[in-house]
């Protein structure tokens, strides 16, 4: 395992500020108790658990944050939000990272590539919410 230094310069601070602006949350409120990750129904699918993900944001690591799949696995069920002892809207942090990603790259889901059969089969509630969360 190799170690590296993490610098928190202007780029990192700008990322933290953007996440805080979009989400309306203070990322430094988080004291890393891990309750969010423990209660998350999808932790097993995430390459960074929710609290690890928030830690990356606290350190302004934009690239590593966006590279994680955490915010794309999150289904906005708000279990973390209602349970956070620091009253952070964790789901809003996830949304903020999704927004930042989509504003640079608006197609997490490429609608044109979805098979026609499943478009026909799926209820519109699924399509509407998916496109709202995964296309910009």
């Amino acid at each position: 395992m190799s170690y590296g230094y993490i610098k928190i310069g202007s780029e990192e601070k700008a990322f933290i500020a953007k996440v805080e602006e979009i989400s309306g949350q203070n990322v430094y409120s988080c004291y890393q108790c891990g309750k969010c990750s423990a209660g998350c129904a999808f932790s097993y699918k995430m390459d960074k658990t929710v609290n690890q993900f928030i830690h990356l944001i606290q350190l302004g690591q934009k690239e590593r944050t966006l590279d994680a799949n955490t915010h794309w696995i999150c289904a906005s069920c708000f279990t973390c939000t209602v349970r956070c002892p620091r009253e952070i809207d964790v789901a809003a942090l996830m949304e903020a990272v999704r927004e930042i990603s989509l504003r640079e790259n608006p197609e997490k889901v490429r609608i044109a590539d979805l098979p026609k059969e499943s478009l026909e089969k799926l209820p519109n509630i699924a399509l509407v919410s998916n496109f709202r969360k995964k296309t910009g």
Partner: peptide, 8 residues
């Protein structure tokens, strides 16, 4: 939705 999924 099959032909114009963007309607969603």
């Amino acid at each position: 939705l099959r032909y114009y999924p963007e309607v969603a």
